[in-house]
């Protein structure tokens, strides 16, 4: 069985400044979006106050697709032997988790908007149906990742599933589009957008804000994977080394460890003194 290069360094501490800058930028732009969206932007002629949910829903939906897109591309890069690196698997899980959360938010905000606009919490619209299927598939992907302990096997299985799911989404897109269509068409990304002024500015700002938030969360999730890898690799060794060095120090022996000051110290202490010590210090372990 082949193992991927789990020990290769991640961006880790080198990207602290980038993460911090992204985090603050996201907070500022999100606050600005809330201010513009709730207080500055006027109510819509047709939708009234309901237009304000559009400063949240399209941006979140786009970030949901961006997260899953990142997962698919990273899985493809991981599966291709020339580009195989643990980094891609970390990016894939980061994209999938962020995509899943935004997918749920998309469904909830879309449902609220649908109740006010169409009069129902749910309708069998292609995009709604596709998003719900995508959410269910992402839950399966994440459940699969949690079920496999071996990191190499987990990376292989989840990468294959991510690719198969991406292909299924293409088929689903056609299936649900042919079936029924109620959803509003493109309003923003066309030569003559149907939103103007403060509404347009707020919508564009919301895309920037949620884009920054997505990048920030993805980087944090990636860093968490780096730390988990380090824990898997080094955690047991460090714990063993600490325990051995503890056992090697006579004054620091715990209640389960026989020592000169504990009950029966005459016998066990003698035995301990007679046996050669096999304990290694953390530096010795690290040097191996």
């Amino acid at each position: 069985m082949r193992y991927s290069k789990a020990s290769e360094p991640g961006p880790a501490l080198g990207h602290q400044h980038l993460r911090r800058a992204l985090g603050w930028s996201a907070i500022v732009t999100l606050a600005l979006t809330a201010w513009w969206g709730l207080l500055i932007s006027p109510p819509d002629v047709v939708q009234g106050q309901l237009v304000r949910i559009l400063y949240l829903h399209p941006a979140v939906a786009t970030m949901c697709y961006a997260g899953f897109g990142l997962c698919t591309l990273a899985s493809l890069a991981w599966l291709w032997s020339r580009t195989r690196s643990r980094r891609w698997d970390r990016l894939a899980v980061a994209g999938a988790e962020v995509g899943s959360v935004f997918c749920l938010v998309t469904l909830v905000t879309g449902s609220i908007w649908g109740r006010a606009t169409w009069g129902v919490w749910w309708t069998w619209d292609p995009r709604l149906t596709l998003t719900a299927i995508l959410f269910a598939m992402s839950l399966g992907y994440l459940a699969l990742r949690r079920s496999i302990d071996n990191s190499h096997a987990r990376s292989v299985a989840s990468s294959v599933v991510a690719l198969l799911m991406a292909l299924t989404v293409v088929v689903d897109h056609y299936a649900t589009s042919w079936w029924n269509s109620l959803h509003q068409g493109t309003t923003l990304w066309k030569p003559d957008p149907t939103v103007h002024g403060w509404q347009l500015a707020t919508m564009l700002l919301s895309f920037l804000a949620f884009g920054l938030l997505t990048a920030w969360v993805v980087l944090h999730r990636y860093q968490l994977e780096v730390l988990e890898d380090r824990y898997e690799q080094e955690g047991t060794q460090v714990a063993l080394a600490a325990r051995r060095s503890e056992a090697a120090s006579p004054g620091l022996a715990g209640p389960g460890q026989p020592g000169p000051s504990g009950p029966g110290s005459d016998l066990t202490g003698a035995a301990t003194r007679d046996e050669p010590s096999t304990a290694k210090t953390p530096s010795e372990l690290g040097a191996r």
Partner: peptide, 11 residues
Amino acid sequence: LLPLLLAPVLA
């Protein structure tokens, strides 16, 4: 796990 993975794919 299998039904969770397979059901949305078979939609």
